[in-house]
Amino acid sequence: MGGLGFDVAHMLAGGLVMISFTMLYQDRLSAVIHVYALHAVVLSLSVAWQAFIQEAPHLYITAAISLVFKAIIVPTALHRIVRRLGIHREVETVVGIGPTMLAGMGLVALSMVLMLRVTPGADALAREDLAFALSVLLLGLLMMVTRRNAVSQVIGFMSLENGLVLAATGAKGMPLVVEISVAFSILIAFIVIGVFLFRIRERFDTVDVGALDHFRGERR
């Protein structure tokens, strides 16, 4: 059972890293949202699996939150926003796809080296979980800095946050995980509502945050 438990957890966490990579090379916004929904589903499976092998029933709540909220409600809302703004085709990147993928690989290698080196004492499952979680986190950050578009920056942030939930559930017996995942869901809800309510497109004519530079308070 220990072997199988480890393998499944490993596969799901590794799957999250793979999906983060997939997100990096999408060239259409609606595809990015689809991939994010998949990311959330895999996260929810991974958390549920952790709940099962750690015998920690409260983690099922976190799994349910990530399934219902992150995999269904948020993507649906984002699809609506994107369609209404008519930007479902655009993904404007700062750097080309090739260099981004290379940078992503470098970041994953970095997090593996770092995490495996500093945690020789921890058990194998927690170590690898942490290494994968840091990879997902860094890939999310990479996505945020290589995209100009506000919606894809938000998706980058949400995938980063998925990495954090992975880390928190992998840390066996960590208290407050459910509370923290609820706090993060509130944060995300705020972001999505922010994009929607502030109507960045109406205000700025584009969701390209590059255009926001013109409104720097200095040059009124």
Binding site: F198, I200, V209, F215, R216, G217
Partner: peptide, 10 residues
């Protein structure tokens, strides 16, 4: 809710 305020908040 001006341009600048929204940008700053974002």
């Amino acid at each position: 809710r001006t341009h600048e305020a929204l940008e700053a908040a974002w």
